[in-house]
């Protein structure tokens, strides 16, 4: 009797596993694949992140905070904030303008324009820095004229700002274009029929609808602006306390074997990166909530 029951259960579970087999692997395959993925990500993502903080606090909390009392470190932080403070708003204005033109209108050469906006993504940061040296450097196209007028761009703050703008150029635009495109024109048309002006339509209808995408575009643009290394390295000239940004300062400290201060400054940028990821998750969650239009809500009786 007991035997028959056991048999039956077995055949039943066999049947369900066959049914699952169509779209799901056996548990040990799943387990193995998941483990490999976790180990891979652990090696390449978690560990680098962890080592930054572990090394930063390697000689205690006091040593960690002492790193930020260095005048050079403070100067680097100030310069980084300045460069990002100029680059991000400029690229924000550009991104919004480009997104409006591209997402709302049909014109010839549109896909070429989109490709050109993507260009800074595909150019090596070092080359990005180099192009500004070739224009504004001493031997550059405008070099003699700049020297005659005593204007310094390369190995000075303006060059760092320019290089930062270049490498973070596409971020806001790329984030906004697909979003605004997906919104369609209906709400803008409705606003216009109700007598709203172009600016009113943009600020009261278009912008609120893409605000989360805009927030993420700005925050990722900011993270990249503050963290840019290659392009800034080429145009900066590495003058301590004057033209060193945070990443450049990290490089100098690291090469001088001052590991705790190097990782302490790095930990600030790592925190910024984590904050960026948090904002991204929140934004994704928020925009999913917005998209999810509940089915007809009949809990309220239509009057």
């Amino acid at each position: 009797m007991a035997r028959t029951i056991t048999l039956r259960t077995t055949s039943r579970s066999a049947a369900t596993s066959v049914a699952q087999g169509a779209t799901l692997e056996s548990p040990w395959v799943r387990w193995t694949l998941t483990s490999i993925a976790i180990v891979f990500l652990g090696l390449f993502l978690f560990m680098p992140l962890a080592v930054v903080f572990v090394s930063a606090f390697g000689k205690g909390i006091a040593a960690y905070f002492a790193s930020f009392r260095e005048p050079d470190a403070l100067a680097a932080i100030r310069l980084t904030l300045l460069a990002a403070g100029i680059a991000v708003p400029m690229n924000l204005v550009f991104g919004v303008a480009a997104a409006w033109a591209i997402a709302k209108f049909e014109f010839i050469g549109k896909s070429l324009l989109i490709t050109l906006i993507d260009l800074p993504f595909s150019v090596s940061p070092v080359v990005s820095g180099l192009v500004y040296v070739l224009i504004f450097g001493l031997q550059g196209l405008l070099g003699p004229w700049l020297r005659a007028h005593d204007i310094k761009i390369i190995f000075a703050v303006p060059g760092i700002v320019l290089a930062t703008i270049f490498v973070t150029f596409p971020f806001v635009a790329r984030e906004l274009i697909p979003l605004i495109q997906a919104q369609g024109n209906d709400e803008e048309e409705a606003a216009l029929t109700l007598g709203a002006s172009g600016w009113q339509t943009f600020f009261r209808v278009t912008l609120p609808n893409v605000k989360w995408g805009l927030v993420y575009g700005v925050i990722i643009c900011n993270a990249r602006a503050m963290g840019e290394f290659g392009a800034v390295s080429v145009v900066s000239g590495h003058i301590r306390g004057l033209t060193n940004t945070m990443p450049l300062h990290i490089e100098i400290l690291y090469n001088e074997y001052q590991f705790v201060p190097a990782f302490a400054v790095a930990s600030l940028l790592a925190l910024l990166a984590l904050l960026t990821l948090v904002v991204k998750s929140v934004v994704e969650w928020k925009s999913q909530q917005d998209l999810k239009e509940p089915e007809e809500d009949w809990s309220v009786e239509p009057a």
Binding site: L49, G227, F263, L269
Partner: peptide, 10 residues
């Protein structure tokens, strides 16, 4: 999101 220099030293 992580600056390349930070990734490099890590």
């Amino acid at each position: 999101a992580l600056p390349t220099a930070v990734a490099g030293i890590a």
